[in-house]
Simulated scan of single mutants.
Amino acid sequence: MGNRGGTAVARATVAELEEFAAEAGCAGIDGAGDLGGGWSQVQYDDQPDGAALAAALARRTGAPVLTVAYLDSDVGFVEAATFAGGSWRALLNRVTAENYEIPVDRFPVETALAGALDWAAAAGLSADPAGIRAALADSETFAEELTDRLLGALGIPSAAPGAAGA
């Protein structure tokens, strides 16, 4: 895949999320889609700091937001924020991250799991703790695959296991 960009997921229309992401500094928005249940996703070539982006989008949408910045599709850096100011971060594809000499101990799975569950509750979603833990701890060829699994485990409607189009 070779992705060096990122993705943002929020409860907003596709047009709103595209506009908000551009306003927040995302460059090269090149893909967007409706995930169902009021959730949308945009992809972009370049983004500002992930934590700042997630917080800015959460303020703008008034809803929880999750962003993932990709390192050549090998590793994903997750940043999530809620409108109330809650946040969490995680690392996707830990084994590959170690090969890049990324200090995975700075991204504890259990801390991310707790944050993810709080985030999902704030979003009114029914999360799957075991599925979230697996997405955060497992490895795949592409980090985007783990993003899809994480979104489904968080309860994002069309990304949920068994949902139409998933």
Rank of each mutant, 00 (worst) to 15 (best):
M1H: 15
G2I: 08
N3E: 11
G6H: 04
G6M: 03
T7K: 06
V9L: 02
V9Q: 01
A12K: 04
T13F: 02
A15H: 09
A15M: 02
A15Q: 13
A15F: 02
E19K: 13
F20S: 06
E23P: 01
G28S: 10
D30F: 05
A32C: 04
A32H: 13
G33R: 12
D34N: 14
D34A: 07
L35R: 09
Q43W: 14
D45R: 15
Q47G: 15
D49S: 13
A51Y: 00
A52W: 11
A54L: 06
A58H: 10
R59I: 12
R59C: 00
R60H: 04
A63F: 01
P64N: 06
V65N: 09
T67W: 03
T67V: 15
Y70G: 05
Y70C: 03
D72M: 12
D72Q: 11
D74N: 15
D74C: 08
V75I: 15
F77M: 11
F77I: 11
E79Y: 10
A80G: 15
A80C: 01
A80V: 04
T82F: 07
A84Q: 15
G85W: 11
G86Q: 07
W88P: 00
L91H: 09
L92F: 07
N93P: 04
R94W: 10
A97M: 05
E98M: 13
Y100I: 09
Y100C: 02
E101S: 10
E101L: 09
E101V: 00
P103N: 14
P103I: 08
P103R: 14
V104M: 01
D105M: 02
F107P: 04
P108N: 03
P108R: 05
E110R: 14
T111D: 14
L113F: 13
A116G: 13
L117Q: 15
D118L: 08
W119Y: 13
A120D: 04
A123P: 11
G124N: 08
G124S: 05
L125S: 00
S126L: 07
D128S: 11
P129V: 06
P129Q: 13
G131H: 07
G131P: 04
G131R: 06
R133H: 13
A137P: 06
D138R: 12
S139N: 15
E140R: 15
E140G: 01
L146I: 12
T147I: 02
T147G: 04
L150G: 01
L154K: 11
G155F: 09
G155H: 08
P157S: 06
S158F: 05
A160Q: 09
P161E: 02
A163D: 05
A164L: 13
